[in-house]
């Protein structure tokens, strides 16, 4: 399991709020039994309709840090959404806020989502508009985004933050380590396993 402390690269700005997971990956692309190939379908409908979607802009190809607005990833719990972003090449997200299930899915696949104040997101948009190739770093230890001329503070819930820095964002191993305690709780519950009763 790898520790994730810092992501360096270039940004891709995605203006707008309440961008839901149906838009990130439309439902027809969920007809699959693996996550392979989802990268090409990310924002499929938005991209076709807009004709000038940031994900198609030549100067944003190869970018790895997504900049978003409020309540990003709301709606469906489909992990296909962060998977599609990751497979397109996104390694971190900086935004005003995230929907909760989406945020948890991102943690589980090692895709850090940092939160920044609206004016700092605006600052990022301005900087990227002036120079689409501007290098930036999301530093999870310092909890800041660094640009050549500025530093912007970011936040992350403590649990997720520790998991990225400790390299324990894939929780299965840790959870399984508590096997004895799991069995104890299971045995102590006032209700049995659902199938133990009835028909």
């Amino acid at each position: 399991m790898s520790r994730i402390a810092s992501i360096e690269g270039r940004a891709i700005p995605l203006p707008g709020h309440d961008i839901d997971t149906d838009r990130i990956i439309p439902a027809r692309f969920l007809r699959c039994v693996t996550f392979d190939g989802l990268g090409e379908a990310v924002f499929a409908d938005d991209r076709r309709q807009s004709g000038q979607h940031p994900f198609d802009a030549p100067h944003h190809q190869g970018a790895n840090i997504l900049v978003v607005g409020r309540n990003f990833g709301c709606g469906s719990s489909r992990e296909h959404a962060p998977q599609a972003l990751a497979k397109w090449g996104i390694r971190a997200i900086v935004g005003e806020s995230y929907a909760e299930i989406f945020f948890g899915n991102c943690v589980a696949i090692g895709l850090p989502c940092a939160t920044a104040r609206p004016e700092h997101i605006q600052h990022l948009h301005t900087a990227i508009a002036e120079d689409p190739q501007i290098p930036l770093t999301l530093d999870l230890e310092a909890l800041e985004v660094r640009l050549p001329q500025s530093r912007l503070p970011v936040e992350m819930p403590a649990g997720a933050h520790r998991m990225f820095l400790a390299g324990t964002w894939d929780a299965t191993g840790q959870l399984l380590a508590g096997l004895a305690a799991i069995r104890e709780i299971a045995g102590r519950l006032p209700y049995g396993s659902p199938l133990a009763k009835g028909g």
């Binding site: 962060p82 948890g104 589980a108 929780a171 959870l175 508590g178």
Partner: peptide, 16 residues
């Protein structure tokens, strides 16, 4: 929950 958490529940019956 998402798919990685489905994995966690199948494997451990728990979530973080």
């Amino acid at each position: 929950i998402g798919t990685s958490q489905v994995r966690d529940v199948l494997a451990t019956q728990t979530l973080a």
